[in-house]
């Protein structure tokens, strides 16, 4: 059994960085905790929920996807091959690791996005089992668990009352990481701590059944009153993958950018002619819920939410996917879906 002192996680990060990994860990940054590239001296924080999700390192918020040299009225395509550094997502949340199934699917379900795939192939995922959860955590309601190994190449278990960590390799990438960790890990024994108790809060199948019959329900107005139409939830969400493409140019060079986008923005679906198929925030918030709990399950046999709860923790207006789903399930109980 490979173990290390919980206080020595930064030594492990140092060792892996020395072995050529870009090490992504949750660190203190001002008054927030965020996943960031490890640099010596940073403070690793596994006890607070990071404001960003691990997707930042596979699907960055802005990325050049095409590039041209401009020559007067003509142009010359330039090669675009974004760096895909060997990366370890270390001590990320199991709900972040679980989100990779969604991202892998969307970026490969038909056309294969090699920009994403190159980074994905170079990434080793090492989540840390959660021994504590807060009121917004609901992984167990969407098929996850605080000790889930979904999407993981290796798993870190807190042990001996939080004083030690067990590193359990699960895949070849995980084994390679253990090897690279070398002396930062010791052979020994430790007793894994119990994972956090995350009670199931709703049944996604019941939510999905209600959604199928209730596109026009009055509840959408009520659920969306508080939404002010920003992108905070989508940008923090580990499974949200919508993006915009925008060109920017100097006199001699242009780039085509892929920027994160959100279905919460009014402009997201607005046609050039002015028509908007999702004309109000109720239609936009409905799309967000439908997408995660109806469209994605129907299309890809996945739940499009990993229950991380970031949307609720960060929303300045108090919107919350958990609350929406529990409310929908309540509604479903009141008026059961039509049996056909």
């Amino acid at each position: 059994m490979k173990i290390l002192d919980a206080s020595k996680l930064s030594d492990l990060a140092d060792t892996l960085a020395g072995a050529g990994y870009r090490v992504v860990v949750p660190v203190q940054d001002g008054d927030r905790v965020r996943y960031a590239e490890w640099s010596p001296g940073a403070t690793i924080r596994t006890d607070a929920f990071p404001v960003n999700s691990a997707k930042d390192f596979l699907f960055p918020r802005s990325e050049v996807i095409d590039r041209y040299q401009l020559d007067g009225d003509d142009f010359t395509p330039l090669e675009v091959r974004p760096p895909a550094p060997r990366t370890v997502l270390l001590a990320v949340r199991p709900c972040d690791a679980a989100s990779l199934a969604m991202l892998d699917t969307i970026f490969n379900w038909d056309y294969e996005d090699d920009l994403y795939n190159a980074r994905r192939a170079a990434t080793t995922v090492v989540p840390l089992v959660c021994t504590r959860a807060d009121a917004q955590c609901f992984c167990t309601s969407v098929g996850g668990a605080p000790d889930s190994s979904a999407g993981a190449d290796a798993l870190l278990h807190p042990a001996d009352g939080g004083s030690r960590l067990i590193l359990e390799p699960l895949t070849d990438k995980g084994k390679a990481l253990v090897e690279a960790a070398g002396g930062a890990l010791a052979d020994g024994k430790a007793a894994p701590d119990a994972p956090a108790d995350v009670p199931a809060r709703f049944d996604p199948d019941k939510v999905r059944a209600w959604l199928a019959d209730n596109f026009e329900a009055d509840l959408w107005d009520l659920l969306s009153y508080a939404c002010l139409g920003c992108g905070a939830c989508a940008y923090a969400c580990p499974t949200c993958h919508c993006f915009d493409m925008q060109d920017e140019a100097t006199r001699t060079e242009s780039v085509r950018l892929r920027n994160w986008d959100s279905c919460g923005f009014a402009l997201f679906t607005k046609h050039a002619g002015g028509h908007n198929p999702r004309p109000d925030q109720a239609a936009r918030w409905r799309n967000r819920v439908m997408h995660k709990f109806s469209y994605i399950p129907e299309r890809f046999d996945l739940v499009g939410c990993t229950g991380c709860g970031r949307c609720a923790r960060l929303c300045p207006a108090g919107m919350a996917m958990l609350e929406a789903c529990t409310r929908i399930e309540e509604e479903a109980r009141k008026a059961p879906a039509h049996e056909s």
């Binding site: 969307i106 379900w109 038909d110 056309y111 919508c242 993006f243 493409m245 997201f268």
Partner: peptide
């Protein structure tokens, strides 16, 4: 509908 990627990724 409004589109950006054309290949089933951008989600709009």
């Amino acid at each position: 509908n409004r589109m950006k990627c054309g290949v089933g990724k951008c989600g709009r």
